[in-house]
Design a protein around this nucleic acid. Structure first.
Lengths: 162, 162
DNA sequence: TATTGTTATACTCTATAACTATA
DNA sequence: TATAGTTATAGAGTATAACAATA
């Protein structure tokens, strides 16, 4: 188990929206919209370790599995993706390899490079992880269809323009 | 420095949208909308350690400062908020206290409890951190006003209903 | 010479378990 | 007895620095 208190024994002291950001009414339109998204975002970030722990993965390991689904990746590319030093990736991959989730394959073109690929077990675990990650959180699930469609269209445009 | 490669010496190998989730067209409206938001979310999550490092904070320390801005918090409440064991909070607060950012104050009502408050320096740092966190990311900043207003209104409704 | 990955070392974050001081 | 916080210990994530193999 990882990243969680077991019991619901706590006095929760729930807070209203925006426990952190500036008043939502401040700033221009981008700030107003972002401040609200920020809420959802940080709630999700807070829950991510617990979500990864459901699969007995650390948050970083979950990121690695997520990324590795796209195909083979050089260790250095992974280090870059994770914004961490290459020396970390060695240990990170050691542990994933020990669990039989990934494999190192030496590159033929450049024998310094080691490519990472998911094992069958790794791909299976990744599939379950991705399904879990892709399940809309309650706040999204509760939205009316009209808002969901608008949100989808807005995000489609934004990601396309990017 | 923390959580970052220094140079832009890497071959970036950028990917298109959705490096992870299921096809965006799958599922119902909630899944479609969520899959797109998911993209933005994980990009933000990936950058969070680097962002915290700009203030020489670990990601967790940044979360603590963010949360502590709302007022005094018992150590146990903070542990609950962070979804971590109480024993971690001791060390976490030790380090923040050593840097002069927070203070422990014994509660008068229950002398077992220690309340955490920001010092003046802590409040100042938190202010700069929050300003940085609240700055809309490029993807949001580039949205047309019409989409921003719609997004804001949708999120307002969602957070209110919650 | 420069780059890829490893090893060595040190610090932070995390968990569990045993302890203390209060309640 | 139960709870809030600490201490002790161990494993994982992170950084820097030095290194081997390869380019």
């Amino acid at each position: 188990m990882n990243g969680l208190n077991d019991g619901p024994s706590e006095q929760v002291m729930r807070r209203q929206a925006s426990p952190s950001g500036p008043a939502e009414s401040e700033g221009g339109l981008p700030e107003q919209a972002w401040t609200l998204l920020f809420e959802l975002l940080h709630t999700h970030m807070r829950n991510f370790p617990a979500l990864a722990a459901e699969f007995e993965l650390s948050p970083v390991q979950a990121h690695v599995l997520r990324q590795l689904g796209e195909g083979a990746l050089a260790m250095s590319t992974l280090a870059n993706y994770l914004s961490c030093d290459a020396s970390n990736v060695t240990g990170l991959v050691d542990r994933l390899e020990a669990r039989g989730l990934v494999e190192r394959k030496s590159s033929e073109q450049d024998r310094r490079v080691k490519m990472l690929v998911l094992t069958e077990a790794g791909a299976e675990l990744r599939g379950r992880l991705m399904a879990r990650l892709s399940a809309p959180p309650p706040l999204i699930a509760a939205m009316p269809d009209e808002d969901l469609a608008a949100l989808r269209d807005i995000m489609r445009r934004a990601l396309k323009t990017q």
